[in-house]
């Protein structure tokens, strides 16, 4: 039963990275686009993700509920020591979620639209940045549960070069996912070329940010290279991710949208797999060498069992409905054109 719960936790994080990530990315692309393309991005995005955008963000809630019900010690350790970036991420989520709805449901279109747009695009970049920082802090051995002063307990636990590099990398991954996704949704060749260009820029940016992550890891004494090359799964996943990236670059111009989407999804999934599998079942590495584990720090058997049943039962309702939602709007889109 515990492994069912862990599988759900991983799947929610994975789907949040892919779907929520593409969602954040759309805002990031809007942020970096020149004004003549901003509108195009905005309208395409609203048409495509409008119906499912609430659902994309549910995965975060599922993940957090699994954590606090099934793994309370992990949830509370994060809540205490990385309070500040969690709060920053929450503010980003509030700003982004409300700005998205406000701009689509304001009955009058006037200068307020520009305000909503600004809030939306900036929070689209800030939120994944802090998500990256949070993810980095769980493995960088900077969380010091014995610290007595404010800075070492609550600030240096997350504020370091490695965290910032991972944050930037997360922004690039989100932008990259969104660009790949939008390519399949625009129809004129000029638009296609435009978004292919953005996707390429994002790949380069992700490559640079990825390099930064390795450099920062070296300076912050995070043994990233040892982790990746010390385990065959790690090497394989990162290898597969790199190869698929090259493939992607080559096939961007000629291939079917669905093929490049799968490649991009695969590429991102491999990075997440490498990042999580290497330490499994440990999920938080602490400064004093101890760690929190999904197996040893799980809640009581009865709780895990009830949680697993709730998740299984939930997915019977959720998954078919979600697929039908995505499928029907995908199909109706054809009719609309």
């Amino acid at each position: 039963m515990l492994y069912i719960v862990i599988a759900f936790l991983w799947t929610s994080i994975w789907l949040y990275l892919l779907l929520g990530g593409a969602d954040f990315g759309a805002g990031i692309i809007e942020l970096i686009s020149k004004s003549e393309h901003k509108n195009k991005t905005r309208h395409t995005m609203y048409r495509v993700i409008g119906p499912i955008w609430e659902a994309n963000h549910m995965w975060l809630i599922i993940a957090i509920v699994i954590l606090f019900v099934g793994f309370p010690k992990i949830y509370t350790t994060m809540s205490i020591f990385i309070h500040i970036p969690l709060t920053a991420m929450l503010l980003g989520i509030i700003a982004r979620g409300t700005a998205f709805v406000f701009r689509n449901y304001d009955a009058v279109e006037d200068r307020m639209q520009e305000v909503y747009n600004r809030i939306f695009v900036y929070s689209s970049a800030i939120t994944p940045f802090f998500l990256g920082i949070i993810a980095a802090s769980t493995v960088s051995r900077k969380i010091d549960v014995q610290a007595t002063d404010f800075l070492s307990a609550y600030v240096y636990s997350w504020l370091n070069g490695f965290g910032i590099a991972v944050g930037l990398f997360t922004i690039c991954i989100c932008g990259f996912l969104a660009a790949i996704y939008i390519i399949g949704e625009v129809h004129s060749p000029a638009d296609k070329q435009h978004f292919i260009g953005i996707a390429k820029k994002m790949i380069v940016a992700a490559f640079v940010a990825g390099g930064l992550v390795f450099i920062a890891a070296h300076y912050e004494h995070v043994p990233l290279l040892d982790w990746i090359f010390g385990h065959w799964i790690g090497s394989l996943a990162i290898g597969a991710a790199s190869i698929s990236l090259i493939f992607l670059w080559i096939s961007l111009n000629k291939s079917q949208a669905i093929f490049i989407r799968i490649l991009a999804g695969f590429q991102t999934s491999m990075i997440l797999l490498a990042a999580t599998y290497i330490h499994f079942p440990k999920i938080i590495l602490l400064k004093d060498g101890a760690s929190l584990s999904l197996i040893e720090d799980a809640g009581s058997d009865k709780t895990i069992e009830a949680l697993a049943w709730a998740l299984l039962l939930g997915s019977i309702f959720i998954l078919p409905a979600l697929f039908y939602l995505i499928y029907s709007f995908e199909k109706k889109k054809g009719i609309a054109h």
């Binding site: 599922i62 509920v65 019900v69 309370p72 010690k73 509370t76 809540s79 009830a306 709730a310 939930g314």
Partner: peptide, 22 residues
């Protein structure tokens, strides 16, 4: 509070996740 209460009173939250998703 959450460290101790989470595993006990979390059941409605996990079901609520489903309801909210639907």
């Amino acid at each position: 509070f959450m460290e101790h209460a989470g595993p006990i009173f979390g059941m409605p939250f996990s079901l609520e996740g489903t309801a909210f998703f639907i």
